[in-house]
């Protein structure tokens, strides 16, 4: 399946998910294509949820060490 094992980041996955949602809502595709989109969408949902659950804020510090004057 597409995106399986790929290192896709949250933002890309979520934007793709929104695109699929819009396309499915527009009801333009046939059953077979819709099924494909459905599977892809669910996979993206899972990726997004995993990314959110496992997320840990990464912080890099830089700049002046001085305190306020």
């Amino acid at each position: 399946m597409e995106f399986e094992g790929e290192e896709i980041d949250f933002e890309t996955a979520f934007k793709e998910l929104e695109k699929i949602t819009n396309r499915l809502e527009s009801d333009k595709d046939g059953l077979e294509e819709s099924l494909k989109l459905y599977k892809k969408g669910l996979n993206l949902c899972r990726i997004c949820e995993e990314r959110l659950k496992n997320a840990k804020l990464e912080i890099e510090y830089d700049g002046e060490e001085n305190l306020e004057e």
Binding site: I59, D62, G63
Partner: peptide, 14 residues
């Protein structure tokens, strides 16, 4: 928390 933060300190007064 998905985001990466880059904290760059600065003197904010004076």
């Amino acid at each position: 928390p998905v985001v990466k933060l880059y904290v760059c300190y600065a003197i904010m007064q004076g």
